[in-house]
Design a protein around this nucleic acid. Structure first.
Lengths: 125, 125
DNA sequence: CCGTTAATGATAATAATTACTATTATTAAT
DNA sequence: ATTAATAATAGTAATTATTATCATTAACGG
């Protein structure tokens, strides 16, 4: 395991912000000044491919990454762009007609996202 | 309302594929040959801003668009990239401790996505 | 150690989207 | 219908995020 990858993992472990590749790059560069952005992308992608981390799609351009692979919803603040973990999981029963629909497909994962205003942004009107 | 926008709306109405900007562009260009891709993007974005249509994030680069603004989950096929509507909505009760969490935020929308293999792709092993 | 293999840094290339601007079309008021 | 005001368009350039390339460097197993 290269030092670069170790520090990339540290970046993800030590952040609750679900950092983007750029944010990880900043963290790593503070410790390995000449690290390449490509190395960050390459490592994030391979860790994602091997299911070590989760990739989060966002309305704004950049993808975000989560070291926590336990299924849990995310909350996206529309104002400040922050992404938070939602501290519960919905386990709703699937209706019968829907289970027929699902049986005809292979479902490998599901993601639940909320959007709105976070605690800080909803106070500042 | 410009003719361009009318045809862009037609494209979305007549498709069940949740088309990308590119796919809409192809449809419109077949009817207005010198339409500009920028016009397609501009219209899709403004329709999205005014909540006329829904923007769907995808793991692969391009965003997709849905004329159906009724909340409903989407199913993303990992093999062929197809996006399907899921014919049911989960309405699970929110646990009490979670409702506390949600009260401190403004929730404006939620999206539920499934990933896996679609009917065709799950047969062809 | 030392050779093999894999990962890196630096940079170029690509893909998706957005910005710019001169021109054209739409609209509202005559 | 005509016209002036406004908004939207086509065409193109620029930007942003990400991926590819490749010569060099680092990790690992014997």
């Amino acid at each position: 395991m290269t030092n670069q990858r170790k520090v990339i993992i540290d970046a993800l472990k030590s952040s609750k912000a679900h950092p983007s590749a750029d944010m990880v790059y900043d963290y790593v560069r503070a410790r390995i000044p000449n690290v390449s952005l490509g190395t960050v992308y390459r490592n994030l992608e391979s860790m994602y491919q091997s299911s070590m981390i989760v990739k989060i799609e966002t309305p704004g351009g950049q993808k975000r990454f989560d070291f926590n692979t336990e299924p849990h919803p995310h909350f996206h603040c529309e104002k400040c762009g922050k992404i938070e973990d939602v501290p519960f999981e919905l386990h709703a029963p699937v209706p019968d007609e829907a289970s027929e629909w699902m049986k005809r497909r292979v479902i490998t994962s599901s993601t639940l996202n909320y959007r709105g205003l976070c605690e800080e942004c909803s106070h500042i009107i």
